[in-house]
């Protein structure tokens, strides 16, 4: 391979890396073979996380309300 060809290949590689760095080569979902749809899966994953936290804190609230009822029930027994 001549020095000129090596230089051309290197330049193409640098250009490809630069384009990828600028985001012009969009990441592709390997399964779908197409760019990720908008909204990105990340935002829906965030929704899942938010809902998990909401459900967890609701469990806490429900436990506290159960304890409130249990305590009130003891007034007549104790």
């Amino acid at each position: 391979m001549s020095a000129a060809r090596i230089a051309t290949a290197a330049a193409m590689l640098v250009a490809a890396v630069a384009l990828a760095g600028c985001g012009r080569l969009a990441p592709v979902d390997p399964g779908a073979g197409a760019p990720a749809a908008d909204p990105s899966p990340t935002s829906l994953a965030d929704v899942d996380e938010l809902l998990g936290e909401a459900a967890g804190s609701l469990d806490d609230t429900e436990r506290l309300l159960d304890d409130a009822d249990d305590a009130a029930g003891q007034e007549t027994q104790r």
């Binding site: 506290l64 309300l65 304890d67 409130a68 009822d69 305590a71 009130a72 003891q74 007034e75």
Partner: peptide, 10 residues
């Protein structure tokens, strides 16, 4: 049992 504890937990 009737007031203080339920109050705290609610």
């Amino acid at each position: 049992y009737a007031v203080v504890l339920p109050q705290s937990y609610v």
